[in-house]
């Protein structure tokens, strides 16, 4: 029974990945639909993100008395990545609910809808990331070759977001209050994770709790640290890798058990 459902879940995920052209098209369509007939298009997001980073950077840079050369790139990379992570999770929650009309009509693997959300947000991230080199230019900080480490980091991050979205989308299809809860949790996570504040400002004890025990910090760090020219700690790689492995096992079991029920819940 369990074996069967695991095979079914794997088959669904494999077919979904094989239909990448469908995922690509739906994701593009989402982005284009949002900004059709607007002259600047998705770059509106970039502009508002840029303005936000600028404002927060000025205010908190003063409050924390941090040097701009260090604080501004840190804030920019953190905010851009956080917005990617949080929208992926939040929209991941509603990815199955939003695709109801397709799910009830066409036998398309359901994981396609999860991938669509991730792909859509990756496209938006690609627009937002433009800000980062501009910030580096503004504070005259060079970008080293070690920044390339953020590519495998990003792949690992996406792998983690995929299983989180898969589980959440399933639970949210069944329990419709969950998206609201997730939204609040994400809000809290934003303040607990060093995005707006530098980790070096933390007093010793608090650091262990807010950094080492915070999985979001590690997920963020595997992409952000290389961009800032820092080394990713082995702990961060291990936590992120372990999360991906463990999370995917759980996700496949849950998905296999409840996949058949999803259409009934919508």
């Amino acid at each position: 029974m369990l074996n069967n459902s695991i095979t079914a879940a794997m088959a669904d995920i494999a077919t979904a990945v094989k239909r990448y052209s469908l995922v690509g098209m739906l994701g593009w369509q989402d982005v284009r639909q949002r900004y059709r007939r607007s002259a600047v298009g998705p770059f509106w997001l970039t502009i508002s993100m840029g303005v936000m980073i600028g404002t927060i950077g000025l205010v908190f840079g003063q409050i924390f008395n941090s040097p701009m050369k260090e604080f501004l790139p840190f804030l920019a990379a953190g905010m851009i990545l956080w917005s990617f992570i949080s929208t992926c999770v939040l929209e991941g929650c509603s990815s199955l609910i939003a695709a109801e009309s397709i799910i009830k009509q066409l036998p398309i693997p359901l994981f396609v809808h999860i991938l669509r959300t991730i792909w859509r947000n990756t496209l938006i991230l690609a627009h937002n990331i433009v800000i980062f080199p501009l910030v580096l230019l503004a504070v005259q900080k060079p970008l080293g070759l070690e920044a390339l480490w953020s590519i495998p980091g990003f792949a690992l991050l996406v792998l983690n977001l995929a299983w989180i979205s898969l589980i959440l989308s399933l639970l949210c299809a069944r329990y419709r209050d969950l998206p609201q809860i997730i939204a609040s949790v994400l809000q809290i996570a934003f303040y607990l994770t060093p995005i707006m504040w530098l980790p070096s400002l933390l007093p010793g004890r608090a650091g262990t709790y807010l950094l080492d025990l915070n999985p979001i910090y590690h997920l963020l760090q595997i992409v952000r640290a290389p961009l800032l020219g820092q080394d990713v700690s082995t702990v961060s790689w291990c936590v992120a890798g372990g999360m991906a492995l463990f999370g995917w096992c759980i996700a496949i079991i849950i998905y296999g058990l409840y996949k058949r029920r999803i259409a009934y819940w919508l």
Binding site: Q29, R32, R36, S101, I102, Q105, L106
Partner: peptide, 16 residues
């Protein structure tokens, strides 16, 4: 291989 033509307009984007 199954195809369902229940709603043939599904997926049509009016802006495209």
């Amino acid at each position: 291989e199954v195809a369902s033509l229940i709603d043939i307009s599904l997926g049509i984007d009016p802006e495209a």
